[in-house]
Design a protein around this nucleic acid. Structure first.
Lengths: 349, 349
DNA sequence: CTGAAAGCGCTTACAG
DNA sequence: CTGAAAGCGCTTACAG
């Protein structure tokens, strides 16, 4: 590989000038620029990224932190990541995939992280990854807010979980549902903590008590097949074995929803005839393909991804000016065919 | 951030010794090592990744090249990437996500790529990304074989597309199907080219001609909703409007399969009663959740991902010894409930 | 086993 | 607008 000295020599200029032509940080005359570029093409020269990084102290990469185990499962992640990559590329940044579990790793990474900042997905209460970034002084933004001691200020993107649960309850209760079961995400996730509290609150406001067996959490660290079982087991248990009255189920994500759907079929019940189903975080195209199509909340994951990068760019000084530290992206209810209206008049006859 | 000089000074050793303690490339005495480590902890020191990279000429990162547009859609990609990340981490490598389209990018990357090698997904005939890597002398392995002029030798992982299509045809024809429609992937992909030829060949061997309207290609660069339409449209067209006889459909991936399923329902036909459905590249857990559950080929994407990294490690000299340049991962047919047997005796009555 | 010194390939004040 | 020189924070022969 040709290096800057080779180009400088052949183009009869100094290394500094070659550097300026490529970085465009200082002006160069047309004549010189063209000579340098021509020689560079001839030599197939391109500045060495690492050498530049060493002096600029920028890697031009951001880390995307995904906890291993829950890796990549739902369409939400996929689209979120899509948003991150596109937005990062727009600002000239690359994305380094970043799983944390250091055990099982033959050669541990005992160097600094070659990233300028990070987007942290699925933060948990007192998330150690976040403590690490905080200590290492590396700028980060979380998806869902931070719940770590000693960290007061941090930037995040999120949906408004409180508002969202309130809207969902309003929607379902408005259609006559009172016995609503909530299959929530992993209990350690901050969004799950928020959603649980908001759900109970939203029901209470409407004069409804939520019994304990009506809220469940996805076990942490599931593999693919266990993942599928979660919604199934809970549904069969509560409705089948325990014979509890449930007229509507709120499922955390699309996978859970599909397994609930199967459970209901196996119980010889129908959706939405016997049980209505509402999906919080479902991929739109999958929701449409399902039979019946599933009413869901569109969390706009790719917008969340893009916003998280923009927030990071602000912290890195790439983007100038004022900015919100905690960005809320709207969740929109998209009505399809999995929620029915209960006529309580009928009950009384 | 503390640097190596700070540690050296405080531990009263040379920088070289500190370096050796961390890199473990040369032995150090216990006494010295402990003193260095203790000071390092105290100073919160960790070697600077970029500085090390500059002299070792290794970035300890591999690129994962995904063409934008078709980005991340199927579960195949997701699991493949999962395999790549885990295996890379095992060898101390990180994964840099790499989308190619440079248009739409505000700040173009005009430096070298900070990667030691790359895994290239979805190679197409005369793929320009591959020409780039080839010219830049950066080691790469492709998922599916290379079809570029001037590139004779290259490493790849793949399923045996010829054998696979032959197995699928044997399976379907064995169950009495003769009128099989194949909804193939994007026609530019090398795997799609292979599969098409193999399909025609496998049918021919069994005395069956494949008419032109029985093979279709997914249009390139689909967005999510168009993606869903592809299988639907073709199915409605061929079976509905053109009224062609089709007893079985082979769908390239899970998304296509779901849309085919919907099309068949809308035509007031059933799976597998009227039309059988076979999925080439379907996520197992999704196949199970579908109704009916879908018979599919398990391509073992995560194994493909892991193998591609191992191949790269061989090229990088991390892994020693002989190795196959083109690794074949077996595709296994997993029977579920979407393929029925046709009794041709019945036809004659 | 340890140290002194050169060097990896760039960028960046400083001077003109 | 351009050049000469120092320096980014490490690793690596070389010498002992």
């Amino acid at each position: 590989m040709a290096k800057i000295d080779d180009v400088a020599r052949l183009a009869k200029v100094s290394k500094g000038t070659v550097s300026n032509v490529f970085s465009q940080k200082r002006p160069t005359s047309n004549e010189v620029r063209e000579r340098v570029m021509s020689v560079s093409r001839q030599l197939n020269y391109v500045p060495n990224h690492t050498a530049r990084s060493l002096v600029t102290k920028k890697t031009m990469a951001i880390g995307l932190t995904i906890p291993h185990g829950s890796f990549f499962f739902s369409a939400f992640h996929t689209q979120f990541i899509n948003g991150v990559i596109l937005e990062a590329a727009y600002y000239g940044y690359r994305v380094l995939l970043d799983i944390i579990p250091v055990h099982e790793v033959k050669t541990p990474f005992l160097t600094s992280y070659p990233i300028d900042g990070a987007v942290v997905m699925r933060p948990t209460a007192n998330d150690e990854r976040i403590n690490l970034m905080h200590m290492g002084q590396i700028p980060f933004v979380t998806v869902g807010h931070v719940m770590n001691e000693n960290i007061e200020h941090s930037t995040s993107v999120d949906n408004d979980n409180v508002q969202m649960m309130s809207n969902i309850c309003e929607y379902l209760v408005g259609k006559g549902h009172k016995d609503i079961m909530f299959l929530n995400a992993n209990e350690h996730m901050t969004v799950s903590i928020d959603r649980k509290a908001s759900f109970i609150q939203a029901m209470k406001v409407r004069g409804l008590d939520v019994e304990e067996h009506m809220i469940h959490h996805k076990p942490p660290e599931l593999n693919s097949s266990e993942y599928m079982d979660y919604g199934y087991e809970e549904t069969v248990n509560i409705i089948g074995k325990m014979n509890k009255k449930v007229t509507a189920i709120i499922a955390d994500d699309d996978r859970t929803a599909f397994s609930v759907l199967n459970a209901i079929k196996d119980l010889n019940l129908t959706v939405p005839g016997d049980v209505s189903l509402f999906v919080i975080c479902g991929d739109n195209s999958m929701m449409v393909q399902s039979n019946p199509s599933l009413t869901s909340m569109d969390l706009q994951p790719s917008e969340l991804g893009a916003q998280s990068v923009r927030l990071l760019m602000h912290q890195l000084g790439v983007l100038q000016g004022e900015y919100e530290e905690n960005i809320i992206v709207e969740g929109k209810i998209i009505e399809r065919n999995s929620v029915s209206t209960i006529d309580h008049e009928e009950d009384r006859k």
